[in-house]
Design a protein around this nucleic acid. Structure first.
Length: 814
DNA sequence: AGCACGCCGACT
DNA sequence: GTCGGCGTGCTC
């Protein structure tokens, strides 16, 4: 039998498949999905590989046998193996990169090589070999390779060590460890039935072994117990425990100890409620698909507060009842305790939670529970789409328009596409949900690629918040109001303060940072390593670069013209906070931004303080728009609605619309009507007007005209080819060659609608690396994949010092 | 990533 | 004539 193997070890960047013989004794366990050790290269060093498939024959004449299997059971299902192979093709990445997404988190192997001294020699050795052998003797004749490298101040002593081994002077032994292992807990089990146990206890007591007797009784009453619990409950000790074990009365066994990512006993159980007339058809439809194992793509557009989550919960419940599993994806930013609570209180311990806050061990344990069928639901951010379930019943993406579903590192996948592929394999429906679906998804729903459901009513029958647009131009001109808070919004805030109701203020900062520039000559303080303006941080009076982390002291004199009129521009949350304190003395403001939420659980702590009434106003950036559900927030202020419109990105309107809609939806979730004030310098802007009315259909129609005219998605795919490197001439040269290659293929020209570039990228330099790009508007991406793969292979083979990235429909086009 | 093979310049 | 520089190509 022959195993077709991919190397998984990240160090071995060999993106090829290799055949190995399966020794007869391993044939039963060496199945697809199994991690194995194989001898690789002339030295036959052991490296980790994954069996992709097993066959009878090989094209290759001389095969080596694989060394051993690394796990008791395959770590990947066949479905996930084929997903890896597909991702490699689809996202133009290596097998290792696609495997990384799917593999058990942090599970890998580490090779340790130990050197053992055998004998010395009179023969003349090279200087490095001599020093290595002498040092090894100093280490009492045995040492680890890495240890000796450090002692000798060398980067690699491998070749010297192998040479000495060949001369028979030392021996190299390899030891391979898994980089993570399960924590085990020891449990005690009574070897008899409880009745026999009581009798045994009496007998022990009669022999004055009272402690042992009590421990046996405890096991009779409680069943199997962790040894530590047994000792605690029965007031016993470990000597007695061992004595019982030696007498054969109990046995001790090990069980994996798995951490939960939440505290289940903190949650009060919840039960499904009777669905509303809008929820019912959606739930019924999903239930039918789940029951009949039918894959279908469904888009649910439900206004904020229309009860989408209850739809998810009831569909998932159907899955669980039928012995199937569910994946529930939410954007990382809205994976709040509030969100987790809703799932845990409905489904209890059958929920696994995956988010970036988990420790390595916790993350691994969640994966293990999913793989071994100990949970039925996973709630998680993007990467949870790879949860190794065996029988998926439904996949749900909440807030499907969110950018965070797209990976910005290789493999540059979109969770939606992975969901469709997995859903199709499992016969499971995929539900996309949002109050403001991406234009692309809504288009697909309108063109029958997805089934569309819409929910227009908020479940508490509250009307959507009353929104008002304030023209910020006239604030300055007509009212001489220099503040970034309009008179109108000031009045509304005051009203809320009087009524003791809460307010959320949202500052849209995308593409709008506080930068320092000279009013005399217009000079802007830029990062010396990246072509980007430095951001001003008021608290420390420093300037920082968001791309490379460079910081420097703020300046008082313009480095260009020497004038003192150099100041920071733009509005940050800190500045607004100060304005609020001036306008409303005694007001309690919670500022939520990068600085205040960076600590562990900082986000959560702030939200809890706001919930508990420790503040009147929550002020923040993007973070305040997601997943917040506070009943007593009645006013929302959008401080600068148009800033995200002015950035050079075809999705600017879409982002602006959904941001304003989502943040306004935060108001009036309780029993009182909500109000929203939208401040803008472009009050006539269509997107802002429609967002104010929460009019998605008109926004969609309007946006589609623009997308069609400009040939943007959904009418094409945007393929972004970026090349970066320190030598600008080399970068220009290589990208020019790529451009030529793209144009030299008449047969694929139909698949390309337009080629833009090569040009310098909008951020022309990051971390001292020059960046050039080519944009393709592709009518048929599938047809272009072979050519793109060819570009990437050629780049890798050419030993280029530059970095190539190919991203299909990137989230940001910088 | 290693490691070998291979083809040119500075040393015993 | 040989040691060693790193370019190129292969690893089942």
């Amino acid at each position: 039998m022959i195993a077709n193997i991919a190397l998984t070890d990240a160090r071995h960047a060999v993106d090829k498949l290799f055949d190995y013989l399966i020794p007869p004794e391993l044939e039963r366990v060496a199945k697809p999905g199994m991690r194995v050790l194989v001898p690789f290269g002339v030295r036959n060093t052991a490296v980790e590989g994954l069996i992709l498939s097993v066959s009878q024959t090989s094209e290759f004449p001389s095969l080596k046998p694989l060394i051993r299997c690394l796990d008791p059971l395959p770590v990947l299902t066949e479905e996930l193996i084929s997903l890896c192979v597909w991702m490699r093709h689809q996202y133009l990445c290596s097998f290792q990169q696609s495997y990384r997404q799917v593999k058990p988190p942090y599970l890998g192997t580490r090779l340790r090589q130990w050197l053992f001294f055998l004998k010395d020699t009179e023969e003349k050795l090279s200087a490095p070999q001599r020093r290595l052998l002498d040092t090894l003797k100093e280490y009492d004749g045995f040492a680890e390779m890495a240890e000796l490298e450090a002692a000798l101040h060398r980067t690699s002593i491998r070749s010297s060590a192998y040479a000495l081994q060949d001369k028979g002077l030392l021996e190299i032994r390899e030891k391979i460890d898994n980089t993570i292992s399960l924590k085990y807990i020891r449990k005690a089990r009574l070897n008899f039935s409880p009745e026999e146990g009581y009798a045994t206890a009496d007998e022990l007591r009669s022999r004055r072994a009272t402690v042992q007797a009590d421990m046996v009784l405890t096991l009779c009453d409680c069943g199997d117990l962790p040894t530590s619990d047994l000792v605690l409950i029965s007031d016993g000790n470990y000597n007695a425990l061992n004595a019982l074990k030696d007498k054969g009365i109990i046995s001790i066994y090990r069980e994996p100890f798995l951490r939960t990512a939440y505290a289940p006993d903190q949650y009060t159980p919840s039960v499904p409620y009777i669905p509303t007339e809008e929820q019912k058809p959606v739930i019924d439809y999903l239930n039918r698909l789940i029951t009949h194992n039918l894959h279908e793509k469904i888009l649910l557009r439900g206004v904020t507060g229309s009860g989408k989550t209850e739809v998810f919960l009831q569909a998932i419940e159907t899955c669980i009842k039928q012995g199937k599993q569910a994946i529930m994806l939410v954007p990382e930013i809205s994976l709040t305790p509030q969100m987790v609570e809703r799932f845990v209180s409905r489904f209890g311990t059958s929920v696994a939670v995956m988010h970036s806050g988990l420790s390595q061990g916790e993350r691994f344990d969640q994966w293990y529970k999913i793989r071994h069928g100990e949970v039925d639901v996973v709630v998680g951010a993007r990467s949870a789409i790879f949860a190794p379930f065996k029988r998926l019943g439904i996949i749900i993406l909440d807030e499907e328009h969110e950018d965070s579903y797209k990976s910005e590192t290789a493999p540059r996948y979109h969770a939606r596409d992975i969901a469709f592929r997995r859903g199709a394999k499992h016969g499971a429906p995929v539900l996309l949900a949002s109050a403001t679906p991406s234009v692309t998804s809504y288009y697909r729903a309108k063109t029958q690629k997805y089934r569309l459901f819409e929910m227009h009513q908020r479940y508490n029958q509250n009307p959507l918040p009353k929104a008002r647009i304030v023209d910020m131009r006239s604030e300055l001109l007509d009212y001489h109001n220099m503040s970034s808070i309009s008179i109108r919004l000031q009045d509304e805030i005051r009203r809320n303060l009087d009524k003791k109701e809460k307010t959320i203020l949202f500052l849209n900062r995308r593409g709008y940072n506080t930068f320092v520039s000279c009013r005399q000559c217009g000079y802007v303080m830029e990062c010396p390593h990246c072509s980007i303006a430095l951001t001003y941080h008021r608290s420390s009076d420093h300037l920082a670069c968001h791309y490379c982390g460079y910081t420097c002291q703020n300046v008082t004199v313009c480095p260009e013209c020497g004038s003192q009129y150099i100041k920071f521009f733009g509005t940050g949350t800190q500045k607004i906070e100060e304005e609020l304190y001036t306008l409303f003395p005694g007001v309690r403001v919670l500022r939520m931004d990068f600085d205040t939420t960076s600590g562990k659980g900082g986000h959560e702590i702030l939200l809890n303080r706001f919930k508990n009434g420790e503040a009147d106003i929550l002020l923040g950036t993007q973070m305040v728009t997601k997943g917040l559900d506070f009943a007593d927030v009645t006013l929302v202020g959008v401080l600068a609605a148009d800033t995200s419109l002015n950035i050079n990105d075809y999705r600017a309107n879409e982002r602006c619309f959904s941001l304003i809609t989502q943040v306004c939806g935060r108001a009036g979730r309780g029993n009182t009507e909500g109000r929203a004030v939208i401040q803008t310098y472009q009050p006539e802007n269509v997107t802002i007007r429609l967002a104010k009315e929460q009019n998605y259909p008109d926004f969609y129609e309007n946006e589609m005209k623009y997308r069609e005219k400009m040939q943007y998605p959904p009418f094409c795919d945007m393929i972004h080819i970026v090349l970066s490197g320190e030598d600008e001439r080399q970068v220009k040269q290589e990208i020019a060659n790529i451009g030529l290659l793209l144009n030299s293929r008449p047969e694929i020209q139909g698949a390309i609608l337009q080629t833009i570039g090569p040009d310098p990228a909008p951020i022309a330099k990051i971390k001292n690396k020059f960046r050039y790009r080519i944009f393709l508007k592709a009518a048929d991406t599938q047809q272009l994949l072979p050519l793109l793969r060819q570009i990437s292979t050629a780049h890798n083979a050419g030993n280029s010092k530059n970095t190539l990235t190919i991203d299909i429909n990137p989230t940001n086009m910088l």
